[in-house]
Design a binder for these strands. Structure first.
Lengths: 139, 139
DNA sequence: TGACGATATTCGTTTTAACCATTATCCTGG
DNA sequence: CCAGGATAATGGTTAAAACGAATATCGTCA
C-alpha cells in the first residue's frame, strides 16, 4: 500500500542512483571518484581560483576535509594551491594544466552519457526538466 | 566557452549533489547512510525476501560487499537473512520489524524533503519529470 | 554420479568519507 | 597594538566503499 507520492519519491531516488552508477563507470577508468570530479568542476567554475572554504560550502564538507580532498587532487597533479595576495588567510585552488586536460577529457564521455540517457526525450522536455532541477536548488 | 549541453549537464549534476546532500541530512539523525537507506528500500520492494545477488545487481555492488552491507544492517537489527527453501544456495533478505519501523519513520521526512523541493512546481510538471526520469533508467 | 556453474561468505587490503579537537596564520576593529 | 574572528592545516579516529582472492555450499545436467 504505497501512496503516489512515495512512488514518485522512489522513482526520483532510483533515477539518481542509476545516474550516479553510470557516472561512476565513466569516471572509474580515469581514476577519479565522483567526489573528486565534483570538486574539479567546482574549481573549474571558480574562474580566478576558488577559496577552499567555498569548495566546502558547495560540497557540504568541513574545511579540514576539503584540505585533504585537495591534498589528494594535488597528489595527482590536477590542482594547485596558492595564497591569496590580498588576504593571506585564504588559499586559492586552481586547476593545473593536467587538471584542465583531465576534466576536459571527461567532458566528452559525461556528455555522451547524458545524451544517451536523454535520447528519445524531446528537447523541450529536457529544457523543462532542467528548469525544474534548477528550481530545486533554490527551495 | 561552455556549450549549452555542458551547462545542462552541470545543472543536472548540481541538482543531484544538492538532493543527495539534503537527503543525507535527513538520514543522518537516524544513523543510516544513503547506501544503507537504498538497500533498505530495495529490500522493502522485494516483497517476499530478496536474494542477496539481486541487491547487488540493483546497487552495482559485488556480492561480497552486499554480504557486509547486509551484515551491518543485521548488526542494527534492521534486516534478517534466511535460506531459500527451494534453492538453498540463495539467501533471502527481509526487513525485521525494527527495519520496517525505521524505514517507515524515514518516509515522512524524505517525502517532506521532496515536497519542499518541488514546492511551487506544477503537479503536471512533476509528473512529466518523473516520466522522463523513468525513461532514463531504460536508456 | 560428478563436474561445473551459481550463490554467498570470509578474509584481507586500500582508499575515502565524516567527524572532532587542536594549532597556525592572518586580518580587522576598537 | 592586540583580542577576537576568520581561514586553513594537522593529527587522529571510525566507518564505509571498492576491489580481489579464496573457500564453502548447493543445484543441475550430461
Amino acid at each position: 500500500m504505497r501512496s503516489a507520492e512515495e512512488w514518485a519519491v522512489g522513482e526520483i531516488l532510483r533515477a539518481g542512483e542509476h545516474l550516479n552508477g553510470r557516472l561512476n563507470e565513466v569516471l572509474k577508468p580515469f581514476g577519479v571518484s565522483f567526489t573528486q570530479y565534483t570538486a574539479l568542476r567546482i574549481v573549474r567554475d571558480g574562474e580566478e581560483g576558488i577559496a577552499s572554504s567555498s569548495i566546502g560550502e558547495r560540497m557540504h564538507t568541513r574545511d579540514s576535509d576539503v584540505t585533504r580532498l585537495v591534498d589528494r587532487l594535488i597528489g595527482r597533479g590536477l590542482v594547485e594551491r596558492s595564497r591569496d595576495a590580498a588576504d593571506r588567510r585564504i588559499v586559492r585552488v586552481r586547476l593545473t594544466e593536467q587538471g584542465t586536460e583531465l576534466i576536459e577529457r571527461l567532458d566528452a564521455p559525461v556528455l555522451a552519457l547524458m545524451a544517451k540517457s536523454f535520447a528519445g526525450v524531446k528537447a523541450k522536455r529536457v529544457r523543462r526538466l532542467i528548469e525544474v532541477l534548477g528550481h530545486l536548488r533554490g527551495a
